[in-house]
Simulated assay, not measured.
Amino acid sequence: MAFLRALKDFACLPDPKTIPPSNLLKYTDTTITLFDKYPKAMFHFLVLPRVRPDAGLTTTVLHDLKSLLAWKEKEKALEVLKDLERESRDIQEMVRDEMRKRYGEGCEWKVFAGFHAVPSMHHVHLHVISSDYVSPTLKTKKHWNSFSPKLGFFLELKDVLEWFQLPEDDFKKRANLLESRYEPLLKSDMKCWRCDTELKTVPKLKEHLQSHFDRDIARMKKKRKHEIDLTGDDENEASTSDGPPAAKMTKLPEGKSE
Rank of each mutant, 00 (worst) to 15 (best):
A247L: 12
A238T: 08
L161P: 00
H122F: 12
M121A: 07
R215G: 15
H212F: 13
A238G: 15
F35D: 00
T58N: 08
K187H: 12
S135C: 02
L24M: 12
E79Q: 14
P184W: 01
K187T: 10
M220H: 13
A70H: 12
F153I: 00
E198C: 09
E227M: 12
H143F: 07
E168D: 10
D36T: 05
Q165V: 04
K173N: 02
D169L: 06
M121N: 05
D189C: 06
P49R: 02
K248L: 12
K173Q: 05
G56A: 07
K200T: 10
K223M: 11
Y103W: 15
L69A: 06
Y27N: 07
D132H: 05
W163V: 00
K76M: 10
K72S: 14
H122Q: 15
L68A: 04
C195P: 07
L46Q: 04
D36N: 13
L199I: 07
Q92M: 15
R181F: 09
Y182P: 00
E235G: 09
V61R: 01
D196F: 09
L48M: 06
E258G: 15
E105G: 09
K225L: 12
K222N: 14
D90S: 14
E254A: 12
F10G: 00
R224F: 06
Y182Q: 00
G152Y: 05
L78G: 07
P184V: 01
L81M: 11
L205R: 04
H143N: 10
A218N: 12
R219H: 14
K82A: 13
A246V: 11
M190V: 07
K206Q: 07
V51G: 03
D169K: 11
M220A: 14
V124W: 01
L155Q: 01
A246F: 06
K110L: 10
E73L: 08
L126Y: 04
I129S: 02
H123D: 02
K223H: 13
A117Y: 02
L84D: 04
M121L: 12
F45S: 01
D97K: 15
M220S: 12
T58I: 11
K76C: 07
L68E: 02
K141R: 15
K142Q: 09
P149D: 03
